[in-house]
Design a protein around this nucleic acid. Structure first.
Length: 117
DNA sequence: AGGATGACAGTGT
DNA sequence: AACACTGCCATCC
């Protein structure tokens, strides 16, 4: 199916590793899963992920720090609500700069500041 | 088999 | 900052 099932598993694990209140990009997840350049595969992996895994899918945003679902859609609203419930603030359509850091580099935000919680 | 689609990303303008 | 275009690759029709 998805190339090989192992890729999906690695992606699911990478997503599960994102701490509450933190976010990461599709590309970042792909890279941490050992699949650089497979950002689109991450989207597919989340789409087909078994619900029982209970993955924090809402913590995955696109490279612009924005939710990839169409604005106004139920999915978009749900994701935003889940993030705000974890303390992630939004600045218009994208996550606040505080969460994005200065560069806007999501992956740096996630693993960059050591010991920051 | 071939083209379109998509929970993306990088670069250029 | 917004938009267009290209690269990427698994699925779908």
């Amino acid at each position: 199916m998805s190339g090989d099932a192992g890729s999906l598993e690695r992606i699911w694990r990478a997503v599960a590793a994102i701490p509450p209140g933190r976010v990461d990009s599709y590309g970042g997840v792909a890279r941490r899963a050992g699949l650089p350049g497979r950002a689109r595969l991450v989207g597919h992996a989340l789409k087909v992920a078994p619900g029982v895994l209970d993955l924090p899918w809402h913590r995955v945003l696109n490279a612009s720090g924005r939710i990839s679902f169409p604005e106004g859609s139920a999915a978009h609203l749900l994701q935003r609500r889940k993030l705000e419930a974890e303390g992630v603030r939004f600045k218009g359509p994208r996550v606040a700069r505080a969460a994005l850091k200065d560069d806007g580099s999501l992956d740096r935000l996630l693993w960059g500041p050591p010991g920051s919680s």
